[in-house]
């Protein structure tokens, strides 16, 4: 399992590291990012024929309440509501990846679930699987 932190140029991570690796061997990508970063990554991933399989948008509502918007196989959502951003996140997402049925046909609706990209949604974090 490789872990990468994006703090600057996503293009560097993609072109410098991920694209080459994924062209050689396809492995599922999973992560926790904001929506815009995810959109960029999703576009880039199409170049190695990988697409969004599953995503949970963690929306912070007025008053700090967290709401989850899930796209993908609903049975995978179990256990994701208390995602941390530390090791427990990795473990939880790895468990999701193990449970995804990659042989099933891709659900195009998941790919169309992207924005909105307005200022208020900058605080939205998305947990996702691209494969």
């Amino acid at each position: 399992m490789g872990v990468s932190e994006v703090s600057g140029d996503l293009g560097q991570l993609w072109y410098g590291e991920l694209r080459g690796q994924l062209r050689r061997t396809k492995v599922p990508l999973t992560g926790l990012t904001d929506r815009a970063t995810l959109f960029c990554l999703e576009e880039l991933a199409r170049d190695v024929d990988m697409k969004m399989r599953f995503r949970v948008d963690r929306v912070v509502e007025q008053g700090g309440r967290i709401r989850h918007e899930v796209a993908g196989q609903p049975r995978l959502v179990t256990g994701l509501h208390d995602l941390g951003t530390d090791e427990s996140f990795g473990n939880a997402m790895a468990s999701v990846v193990r449970r995804i049925d990659f042989s099933s046909s891709r659900d195009v609706r998941i790919q169309r679930r992207t924005g909105p990209f307005h200022n208020a949604s900058e605080r939205v974090l998305v947990a996702w699987v691209i494969a």
């Binding site: 399992m1 872990v3 990468s4 703090s7 990508l29 999973t30 990554l41 951003t85 990795g90």
Partner: peptide
């Protein structure tokens, strides 16, 4: 199964 994890706290594009 091998998995690559991408973590990004913030989009930093201009």
């Amino acid at each position: 199964m091998r998995v690559t994890i991408v973590m990004a706290a913030l989009a930093v594009l201009a």
